[in-house]
């Protein structure tokens, strides 16, 4: 499992092992300031990062920063 969330400290506290930091609490995978197209590009990048994390071996809790 990969956990995509904004407040990574909570994710660490509750024990997720693969963590992807996201944009903001009300829109983790978007940004209303962008156009729809730009927003989808942003979302795709985040999801691809999550998939990459799933393919990565980890030996403990890991936050996948850039």
């Amino acid at each position: 499992m990969v956990h995509m969330c904004t407040v990574t400290p909570i994710s660490l506290t509750v024990g997720a092992n693969r963590i992807i930091p996201t944009i903001a609490i009300p829109y983790p995978l978007g940004d209303p300031k962008l156009t729809k197209e730009e927003e989808k590009v942003l979302r795709r990048k985040l999801v691809e990062k999550a998939l990459k994390a799933l393919e990565t071996e980890v030996d403990g809790q890991t936050v996948f920063e850039d």
């Binding site: 829109y27 995978l29 978007g30 729809k36 927003e39 985040l46």
Partner: peptide
């Protein structure tokens, strides 16, 4: 604030991507 998710729930659940 639910406004953003209500406009486009892909912002929370990325089904489209």
């Amino acid at each position: 604030d639910p406004i953003y998710c209500n406009q486009d729930s892909d912002r929370v659940l990325p089904v489209d991507v």
